[in-house]
Design a protein around this nucleic acid. Structure first.
Length: 233
DNA sequence: TCTATCGTACACATTCCAAC
DNA sequence: GTTGGAATGTGTACGATAGA
């Protein structure tokens, strides 16, 4: 994995503590050929350090910058974890564009960020399954619940929820429960009561009256929309 | 093949209770 | 009274099965 290759490079160059050593490494092939120009290497490197105000703290701290057209989740997760453990590591995504005859790079800084939680993935977590052809399939266990749907704004407090295939209605509350005949109930409890089943797929049988869609459909549509937005260039 | 129905597993919250 | 672990309760996701 290229992130580990970058870490190996960083660790390798961390052993350099003198400018002369770096000159030998960076300019080695050139110096081998033109030994008299060793001073040129020293001068160029000193100029660079001066411009970057790094003469006093030469190579005291290593920094890893990964640049790619895209990053897989494991790489971002590893970089986020290293970031949060005080390893200076950045990830930049470059997207090339062509406008008429001109070429542009769109540069996105993915890491570091203030909150790394969104980038952590668990290797044991099967909530996101990558199929053979590369498509990502989200399993139900990872699906967001009514509180998040309210947060997204795809449903809102006061919306009418109808039991699928029935006339029973409830008014959605801000906590995700429904108000039915002046009584607050969880959606699951309410639907189980209506259908008389021992359990019920809440989001499949709860219909959002305003849109005519089930909560499951609304959730799926919103997630698909977000997914396409995140992959658009 | 799709939908309805149901049992069960799982995650999380709450309650209980013993140990300190 | 506080703490921490076990037991219990609640809500939801997942998968199996029957029937249209």
């Amino acid at each position: 994995a290229f992130e580990f290759q970058a870490i190996r490079y960083a660790a390798s160059y961390a052993t350099i503590d003198k400018i002369d050593d770096l000159v030998k490494k960076v300019y080695a092939p050139y110096i081998e050929k033109y030994r008299s120009e060793f001073e040129l290497g020293i001068r160029k490197l000193n100029e660079f350090l001066q411009v970057n105000d790094a003469q006093k703290n030469f190579n005291e701290k290593q920094r890893i910058i990964l640049v790619a057209s895209d990053f897989d989740e494991q790489t971002l997760s590893a970089a986020a974890w290293l970031n949060s453990n005080n390893v200076d590591m950045s990830c930049y995504r470059l997207t090339p564009y062509k406008l008429n005859e001109d070429l542009y790079f769109y540069v996105e800084k993915l890491l570091p960020v203030t909150n790394y939680d969104d980038y952590y993935v668990n290797l044991m977590d099967k909530s996101v399954i990558t199929t053979v052809n590369g498509d990502k399939k989200i399993t139900r266990r990872s699906l967001p619940k009514i509180d998040l749907m309210l947060e997204w704004g795809v449903v809102k407090e006061g919306d009418i929820i109808v039991a699928k295939g029935r006339e029973d209605e409830g008014r959605l509350l801000s906590n995700g429960n429904v108000m039915v005949n002046g009584e607050e109930k969880s959606m699951q409890a309410w639907l189980k009561e209506i259908y008389g089943w021992s359990s019920v797929q809440t989001y499949v049988f709860a219909v959002h009256k305003e849109t005519g869609k089930t909560l499951s459909q609304i959730r799926e549509d919103y997630m698909a929309q977000k997914e396409s937005e995140s992959t658009e260039v």
